[in-house]
Design a binder for these strands. Structure first.
Lengths: 243, 243
DNA sequence: AAGTGGTCTAGACCACAGA
DNA sequence: CTGTGGTCTAGACCACTTG
């Protein structure tokens, strides 16, 4: 991929993604030395400080480590910051250096089931938005999600095109609603026919089924999402601490 | 304190410590705005990039946060957020009020695969204990686990009867080895025939496959366990926090 | 000696926030 | 408009590693 200096995506960010993709694609293996900052700068025709900025971010994110006088190397994959933080699909994928996009299957305003109603702490007959999306990473379908949101909290949500927009991003930007924490239940289930077709796998293959309830300020529930994740493409990683 | 540019302590580091001390001394309260990068640079007679470097480090360390166009502010002190705790099967079940027991399928002393060897940070030809157990909750088989332990760390482990003993409990009591943290990868897979038979389910049903690497003091790996958990009986629950 | 990362300069232009 | 952080340049010298 070429570095584009004409559009307003920071150069250091583009370099960072390039390196990340080389790591994820396996061109760069754990322990490999990456190009020196000087060479990166020359190759992309940028200043060394900019190249260094990109590398610094990847060092901070735990992908690379520097050795003075020797070079900068690829880390053995780490876990650390994976599961404990509340992030959306788009952000997750971006962090791993994948291109993410969504296919919006449907977005409707309707009256929810009692379960959802109760979970979202809503009165009877109040409406919600229900959105169904298939999520892709590098054009491979990974997840199928059904999201439920209180309509009163997100008026005119259907005006946004969620093909490339993250939901949390949109909530934050246009509705000033920030997710604060979420509870999550992860199950392992055999895929239904519908899910299998949408995610382009065989019926019955093992998948993750995840229920996530997201809360914003003041413990106010703002989202209930059910997700199917392909078992062959998705891994949950986490760090556990004693006591 | 004065900034000393003559000795080989990086300037950015000295600035960083100055700001940190102001925070710890209470001169800078949570929410307070700190001096702008420009002013820091002028006051210490350094370039803005150097001042920025100091601030960046404090941002990365979670002491400060930046707001574009407004300034840089002191964070509210972090609250400890224990997300997931490191517990063994027996303890898990007990906590949920189930009777737990195990059927020890095998316990052997052998030379491990290279993978295990590497993960456990062992020399070639060093031996491990490999133990296979089926774990029950209220007499229902729930999990099938294969555990690998450095034999040198747990001499004569085979003398203990793990039908009712927890592994972590035994380690702590008889070997003075305490698990400190673990990394865990959770996958969703269709059950193999062997696993299905041991756990009394149909072949191919969705299950969790979990790799857990447990570390004791000094980041010393002490255990690698692969677990199959029945998808129809097992749920992972967790709380996620933003940022 | 050559190559690497570590630090630093003295500017520059931009995007965003607020008066 | 001014002041802020965000990005970037084109150099520089240093300290560390390896040949």
């Amino acid at each position: 991929m070429a570095i584009d200096t004409s559009i307003p995506i920071p150069i250091y960010y583009q370099i960072k993604q390039e390196i990340l993709q080389d790591i994820n694609a396996g061109y760069l293996q754990p322990g490999d030395r990456i190009e020196s900052e000087e060479k990166l700068a020359k190759r992309y025709d940028i200043s060394r400080m900019t190249a260094r900025h990109a590398v610094t971010q990847l060092v901070n994110d735990g992908y690379l480590y520097r050795v003075h006088g020797k070079g900068t190397f690829v880390c053995t994959p780490r876990v650390e910051k994976s599961v404990a933080t509340l992030t959306g699909f788009a952000e997750d994928m971006q962090r791993k250096g994948y291109q993410s996009k969504s296919k919006v299957i449907s977005i409707e305003k309707l009256i929810p089931t009692e379960d959802i109603q109760e979970t979202l702490n809503m009165k009877a007959k109040e409406q919600i938005y229900q959105m169904k999306r298939v999520r892709y990473a590098n054009n491979t379908p990974i997840s199928y999600q059904t999201t439920h949101l209180p309509a009163a909290m997100f008026p005119d949500l259907e005006q946004y095109d969620f093909t490339h927009l993250g939901l949390y991003e949109t909530m934050s930007e246009h509705y000033d609603v920030e997710p604060v924490y979420a509870t999550q239940k992860i199950e392992s289930k055999n895929s239904s026919l519908e899910t299998a077709e949408l995610l382009e796998v065989e019926e019955g293959v093992a998948m993750f089924f995840v229920e996530r309830i997201t809360y914003s300020d003041g413990n106010k529930p703002m989202e209930v999402t059910y997700s199917w994740h392909r078992g062959d493409k998705y891994v949950f990683e986490m760090k556990l601490y004693s006591e």
